[in-house]
Design a protein around this nucleic acid. Structure first.
Lengths: 331, 331
DNA sequence: ATCCACACTTTGAACGGTCCAATGATGCTC
DNA sequence: GAGCATCATTGGACCGTTCAAAGTGTGGAT
């Protein structure tokens, strides 16, 4: 069991004071080049890492970010939040931050979790996912002046905090255009009725693309619960209709998988169906789908949050990223 | 901005010493019932939480558990690790622990992550997932005497640490028996060739169940890469064979989904196919599947780990949990 | 020679808890 | 009521770091 190496060990070994070692790490410009190199060498040699606990006591900074881990709510699609979490962990690590998790079934419980965490581990900030109408969380955090960023626009709320999001409409434009380019004239839309927000956003892109091509969108869309079986049923009815669509843009991979099943059962080996989110299922069955740039989203979240913590930059900056199409067998 | 409430605030307000407040929290038996209740009331009133940083400095305990967040490696199946992570977060919270994440592409990088984390945030222990043959991680942790538990048996390594796992064989026994009970005589097995370990375990259960029913397993199994398309292809060949199986037990939901597609394309509306892991896809398409009791696994992990930390209980205890069958339309 | 500015480095205190040793209060026995 | 054990509470040192302020040495200007 090696004795633990503290800043004092390093200082003694380098023949400088403790404070100088601290400066090498936190304010290198205060230390003479020569001294700095020498101290750094000792640090590397001993593998010294500053104790975050001690650092936090004095400076108030924990270099911890709080993130909620979501239950696998909506089946297939819940997966993107897990992937986001993974990307966020890596992006945060780049900026010397770690992620602490908490679970909460609803907004109210999440606010309690903030109180808990802030009082005990005092994370420097939070990254929120799944913003929605009437989101109680952002108001609370703003009031308490706790730094945070959201992955998701503040749907329906005043725009008072930094956020990062993916342009869903741009994604469905890409999907629609691809199907149009393949010769389809009646390109339909299969969405879910989750109220305004994400769902409307994705629908908008489809409408825009059709309009831009001089086509009429009426009668070509349906909105059902976001499950494979509902998607399968709805697609069957749509495809069966004489004036129905011959291709489908779907608001999720679950719906797309349903539509894909339908098409295959009708004898179509390469269904003209495009999904959304590039979930593992899409990859598994070879479904063309719209992919969100989750790594970029995560990096942007970290960038905005560190900007907030360092106090420089605008109070609430926004980043809206473009998704891209992952072309596979379908579509 | 309310002034932050420390142990001193509570002590003053309750008219006792700082140490007594500390005792109320950490060694309640040392404090008289009456005093304890009074101090606790003040704590609740002020919403006081001990600063983990300060606590850690003196006691060395961070009440943090390190967990690796896995990339969505094998598509559909990777999902169970995300669900496990969720359950673990909740189970840990119950025991007053928090989860810190780290990412690492391989064992070697993960060991570097241990060094990093231990030196900076000093988590009290780690929970490892995806144990495998020649796992370099457990040896390192054992040598450094860092407490840890694995979700997964120490496949092929000496049994020197506490672990929790799910009895895969018991799961495939259940699946096989159900198909036999439904009247099938030739129940096949579709697995993946990931070497010994998890894959063999699941195969074993199928063999056992057939043997127990007095049936011959030979010629009824295939092993392919763990993807939907490979599963689909293999199942097509197996079902097409005159002496081939009429029902399939699959080692994963990806393979089962492939087999399910095959069966449906052959006109079977309720395919006799059973998957493994109860992933969202299985729920989505209505696939009968073997479910791992992830909440129980997570709780057992926390229990073993806290036992290790408290120093009581056996050095390396094991928990092997039974999975259960989730019956849906298929199978 | 003295003073000052400058660049760098060191000193001492503080952060908010817990550990340890010691003290005060209480009840019991003889 | 003295002696003793037991329980409850107290005071002070200490964990490893950063902050604020004070200390060193060098060189140039006066």
């Amino acid at each position: 069991m090696p004795p633990k190496v503290t800043i004092r060990t390093v200082a003694r070994r380098a023949g400088v004071s403790v404070q100088t070692v601290s400066n090498v790490l936190n304010s290198p410009h205060l230390v003479r080049q020569e001294t700095r190199a020498q101290v750094q060498a000792i640090i590397d040699e001993l593998g010294y890492r500053a104790s975050q606990a001690a650092r936090q006591m004095r400076s108030g900074r924990s270099r911890l970010l709080g993130v909620r881990i979501e239950p696998a709510r909506d089946g297939i699609n819940g997966n993107i939040l897990d992937r986001f979490l993974h990307e966020l962990t890596e992006a945060a690590a780049q900026a010397q931050f770690r992620i602490v998790l908490y679970a909460a079934p609803d907004d109210h419980a999440e606010i309690r979790a903030y109180e808990d965490l802030l009082a005990s581990y005092s994370p420097d900030g939070f990254v929120l996912t799944s913003t929605h109408h009437g989101d109680a969380r952002t108001g609370w955090l703003l009031e308490k002046r706790v730094p945070f960023v959201t992955f998701g626009r503040p749907w329906g709320s005043p725009d008072l905090h930094p956020w990062v999001d993916v342009d869903g409409a741009a994604g469905t434009v890409l999907a629609t255009q691809r199907l149009l380019a393949a010769g389809h004239v009646r390109v339909g839309f299969l969405g879910s009725p989750e109220g305004a927000g994400v769902a409307d956003d994705r629908r908008d892109g489809w409408v825009t693309a059709l309009r831009h091509a001089g086509l009429d969108a009426s009668g070509l869309e349906r909105h059902v619960a976001d499950t494979v079986s509902d998607g399968e049923r709805a697609a069957a009815e749509m495809f069966a209709h004489p004036q129905g669509p011959t291709a489908l843009v779907c608001a999720s991979d679950s719906l797309a998988l349903g539509a894909w099943h339908t098409a295959r059962l009708r004898g179509d080996t390469q269904p003209a169906v495009i999904g959304f989110d590039d979930t593992p299922v899409a990859r598994a069955v070879g479904l063309t789908t719209v992919a969100q740039p989750l790594a970029a989203v995560a990096q942007a979240c970290v960038r905005l949050l560190t900007g907030l913590l360092d106090g420089d930059g605008p109070r609430h900056e926004h980043v809206l990223l473009d998704p891209h199409l992952v072309v596979r067998d379908s579509g």
